[in-house]
Structures are given as structure tokens and as C-alpha cells.
Design a protein around this nucleic acid. Structure first.
Lengths: 126, 126
DNA sequence: ATTATATGACACCTTAAGGTTTCATGTCAA
DNA sequence: TTGACATGAAACCTTAAGGTGTCATATAAT
């Protein structure tokens, strides 16, 4: 078993961005931020328009957007006096990698369950 | 596009457990809790042993375990005077489902990138 | 019976999260 | 140039998050 047993930081500090304050896991923890991502899937929208979709203040939305940006999940582009935001889905790969480690686990369980059910069916037949 | 544009709660309240306080997204947001999950992948361990792997107090670890349990990611079993915890990976399926929505997105991008690179190679050849 | 161990429950502390309102600044329109 | 609009920054509030230490209780060991 090559699995680490002792404590360790787990997720890379993301030194390239020089803003290690928020990571992907934290960014998607908030339901409002998840809604924000969904809204920006294939649209690039300015803050005011975005905040029109939420029951909270524009400033609050702006803060959420900054957190998403820190995690790399969203990118801003200044156009005239407005700042438009759009989704950047690549950082979610880290999440997928993390998940894949546990995936084998539940797949094993499902396989075992399937085997069990099939055996049960055979019992019924016999 | 049938995608919802207006705000909505996003994740099911998990009424069956009667403890909708913590969901999977929140549960895995904390690096210590992610380490806990990794530690409990194929072992069932009591609190004292678990907390031996972390630089924080046993009480703190216990709280983290409760949060994981509320999210359904960990299950406890009393054996004598000790409470043993083990991983339950199924709730991570919700995460996988959530991810799959964005997966098509980055896959599109990767496909486009690949296409672009191949076109570039052809340019080199020609 | 008495002592030691394992754990949950409390009370408490400090800081960060999520939110609001107000103000300053940059940009577009008249 | 003057006014309207978009946004970021700052100050502030409230509550939850993560942590600590102490105590009570149930179980195991002597």
C-alpha cells in the first residue's frame, strides 16, 4: 500500500497564481458559487447582469466572483466600463482526479452488489 | 437550452438523514477532512487512532468526523468503548454527477485544442 | 471496587465567510 | 463638461468554522 497514512497538506498551493487563498474545493463549497458557475457556462456576463440573477447584493456577487477567479474557475475581461466574467472549467480537473481515487471504491461496491443480486436471482430460479 | 438561469438551492436537502446542515461539497472543502477520508479508505479506525495522524486535538478530529458523517461520507460503529469510523464513498456520486455537467465543456476544449495542434502539424509538413 | 481508557458534550476563543451599505473612480452618453 | 452607469474598495456586522480545554459517562482492565 503506497497510500500516505500521515497528515499532509493534500492540495497544491498553486504558487503560480500567487493567490493561494482559495482552492477549487473551497470555491465550489458554496451553493451560490456553484450557481454562478452554471450561469456562466457558455455566456460571458458583466457583474450587474449576473447579480440580477441572485437575491443578494451586487457586491456580494462580486466577492463570490473574485473567489471563483482565485480558484481559476472564472476569468474576467474588461470591456469598457464593465467587467465580464466567463467560466474556465479546467481547474475542475483537479476535482475529477481527486474523485477518481474513490471512484474505484464505489465501483467495487456496485460490482459486488451486482454479483450478489445475480446470485440471488439464480437462487430464485433454482 | 433547458438550463436554469435563475437562482435555486442546487443541492438536495437530504431530508432522510434529518441533518441537512452539511452537504458533500462543504464536507470535502476542508483539507483535513479530505485527509480523513483518505485515511479511512479501507480501514475502520477509532477516533483516538485517527487523531494520532493529525496535528490537531482529538476533539477537533471528532468534530470533523461528525461533519463527514452528516454528509454521509463516513459511518460510525460502536465497538465496546470505542467508536470506529469507515469511509462511505457513495455520496461522492453527487459530486461526480455535478462534475459531469462541466466535463463535456473541458472535453470540448481539449478536442478543439487537439484539432488545432493537428492542423498546426499539417502546416509544418506542408 | 477501583483505576484507566475512549469518547461525546460543553463552554469558550479567534478568525474567516457571507452579507450589507457607503464612497471613489473610471467610462459612456448628452 | 456634466451626469449616469459599472465596478472595486473599504468599513462594518453577524454567524459559522475550526480550534482548544475541561468534564461526565460508559466500558475495559486490575
Amino acid at each position: 500500500m503506497g497510500l500516505p497514512n500521515r497528515w499532509q497538506p493534500m492540495s497544491k498551493p498553486d504558487q503560480a497564481n500567487a493567490s493561494p487563498k482559495h482552492d477549487v474545493f473551497q470555491a465550489i463549497a458554496d451553493p451560490t458559487r456553484r450557481s454562478l458557475l452554471q450561469l456562466l457556462v457558455d455566456q460571458e456576463l458583466p457583474v450587474t447582469v449576473i447579480s440580477g440573477h441572485f437575491p443578494i447584493s451586487r457586491t456580494a456577487v462580486s466577492k463570490h466572483l473574485r473567489i471563483l477567479a482565485e480558484a481559476g474557475l472564472v476569468q474576467e475581461r474588461k470591456v469598457g466600463r464593465e467587467t465580464r466574467y466567463h467560466l474556465v472549467s479546467e481547474p475542475l480537473l483537479e476535482l475529477k482526479d481527486w474523485l477518481s481515487f474513490y471512484e474505484r471504491h464505489w465501483e467495487n461496491k456496485l460490482a459486488m452488489l451486482k454479483h450478489y443480486v445475480e446470485a440471488d436471482n439464480q437462487d430464485d430460479k433454482g
